[in-house]
């Protein structure tokens, strides 16, 4: 049985200077309750790994606006002007990573690989200062694994064994992030006793804590 805890208790595990991954593609499939709690607890100097920084008023975007993030690793920041502003002014260290590469770096960590070889970014600034390798005459960039202390993810239905299922396009980076962090906290729309095994997208073994939306 997984530990079902409050958002407050779960988020209080995260200390200043932690590295966190946050799931979601824009607002879709983002663990908004967990991020709201992080905003409330004012945890500082975070390194944040995410697909994007949504909008200034929404989940991950608020962490940027509140200046709780010192380093951001993301694929797209265009929807949140504040991220760009802080990047330009030097307040925020931003590492932009192609989305597919970001996902594979996280997957490599989760699956125990020493990195991946990708053709994405060959001949661009992404290649700079990285090792490259030719495989069967084609050039690839070597990308290292990327993990975190915590992953904050979303699940539509989660059962007491930590199994997670999804509705619609809410899966996005949640699935891969669940495999690559020391501690994984899932925010569930709904907690059920036991999911149909056919429905499960993330096996329960990856999950440490379950927070149910709507419950304090």
């Amino acid at each position: 049985m997984k530990r079902v805890v409050s958002a407050k208790d779960a988020i209080s595990l995260i200390k200043d200077n932690a590295t966190i991954m946050i799931g979601g593609f824009l607002e879709c499939g983002a663990p908004d309750l967990l991020v709201d709690e992080l905003v409330k607890q004012k945890t500082q100097n975070l390194t944040m790994i995410s697909n994007d920084t949504t909008y200034p008023h929404a989940d991950k975007g608020r962490l940027i606006v509140n200046k709780q993030v010192k380093k951001l690793i993301a694929a797209h920041i265009g929807t949140n002007p504040e991220t760009g502003r802080q990047m330009e002014s030097g307040e925020l260290d931003v590492e932009l990573v192609p989305m597919g590469t970001l996902i594979e770096k996280i997957r490599a960590k989760g699956t125990g690989l020493g990195g991946v070889l990708t053709p994405t970014g060959v001949g661009t600034v992404i290649e700079k200062d990285k090792k490259t390798m030719e495989v069967d005459g084609k050039k690839f960039i070597f990308e290292k694994p990327l993990g975190a202390d915590f992953a904050l993810i979303y699940g539509t239905k989660v059962d007491k064994f930590g199994n997670v299922s999804y509705y619609g396009t809410t899966r996005n980076l949640n699935t891969v992030m669940a495999t690559a962090a020391e501690t994984v906290i899932v925010q569930a729309d709904e907690l059920v006793d036991c999911l149909d095994p056919n429905e499960v997208v993330i096996p329960g073994l990856f999950i440490d804590y379950v927070v149910v939306k709507g419950e304090k």
């Binding site: 994007d52 694929a75 330009e88 192609p98 989305m99």
Partner: peptide, 16 residues
Amino acid sequence: GKMVPGMGGSMDLVVG
């Protein structure tokens, strides 16, 4: 210096 939206998934898409 002007506009940095980030590449999102475009680099992977164009390569593949």
